[in-house]
């Protein structure tokens, strides 16, 4: 399986979503635009939610969205990767495909969504008179680490889901819980110290708080935790590959 197949699958993944509709690709701009506007207006203007230590009306909305966008990319990548072997069954059972590389098209496809959403978000920020910090340039690095982690996890789950189909429901529920155990809607500091200690072990905290650092605190994100996540992902990928070598035959037989 070559790289062009991944590109083709990515393209397909995108086109398929809106194929047949008149506006087509434009819908992928409309959805995030509406979402972002709703969050900004409802939380900022209507509910008057304020972020501690921030006077701006938009503060909470920016906080929420700057965590929500990467989280959505991360969660979608993992959950969709976890069922990729079953979803692409019609191809896998007919054509020789390199299975470890297959989830990559999901990583790419979610990246496109992420970039589009982020650009819209930045555009809205520009209108609200947000002052951009140069640390924004770190976003690609953070995102890369986040998606490597997502891939390592997604590939692992994808292999296990072939044997344990129920796992995909567990993954969906797991991500619901994980979402609320990550400071996206709320601020880390409001948690009691015990909860803070537990949450400290949440790898998603490393990248979500990095985005918060950039957008809210406008400071250099902490790369120590991100490096740890990167190392953890690397180990997981090696581990994934070992499992794959052992189970490839069974995976192909069971699909």
């Amino acid at each position: 399986m070559n790289f062009s197949l991944i590109i083709e699958l990515t393209k397909r993944d995108f086109i398929e979503r809106y194929s047949g509709s008149a506006l087509g690709f434009i819908w992928s701009f409309i959805y995030p635009l509406i979402n972002i506007l709703i969050y900004m207006i409802i939380f900022g203007n209507l509910m008057g939610a304020r972020l501690p230590g921030m006077s701006s009306v938009w503060g909470y909305g920016i906080y929420l969205i700057s965590g929500l966008i990467p989280w959505t990319a991360f969660a979608n990548t993992v959950t969709r990767s976890s069922t990729v072997f079953l979803d692409k069954k019609n191809i896998i059972t007919k054509i020789r495909i390199d299975l470890p590389r297959l989830p990559l098209f999901i990583v790419f496809s979610e990246t496109i969504t992420f970039v589009v959403t982020l650009v819209i978000f930045l555009g809205i920020l520009l209108i609200t008179g947000f002052s951009f910090s140069p640390y924004l340039l770190f976003i690609p690095v953070i995102y890369l680490i986040q998606q490597i982690f997502a891939y390592s996890l997604g590939f692992f789950l994808a292999m296990i889901v072939v044997f344990l189909r129920d796992l995909k429901e567990v993954v969906t529920i797991g991500f619901q819980i994980w979402f609320w155990f990550t400071p996206i809607v709320y601020v880390f500091e409001i948690l009691p110290s015990l909860a803070q200690q537990i949450l400290f072990w949440n790898p998603a905290l490393a990248f979500i708080s990095a985005y918060h650092d950039i957008f809210i605190l406008q400071k250099m994100p902490s790369f120590i935790y991100l490096t740890l996540v990167l190392m953890m992902s690397s180990i997981l990928i090696v581990f994934d590959y070992m499992i794959f070598k052992k189970l490839e035959k069974d995976i192909r037989d069971f699909i």
Binding site: R12, I15, E16, S19, G20, N90, I91, K94, I95
Partner: peptide, 14 residues
């Protein structure tokens, strides 16, 4: 190339 995979991945909307 197998003719058993004739039309694999065809999407009818495209």
């Amino acid at each position: 190339t197998g003719l058993l995979e004739l039309g694999t991945g065809f999407n009818t909307e495209m």
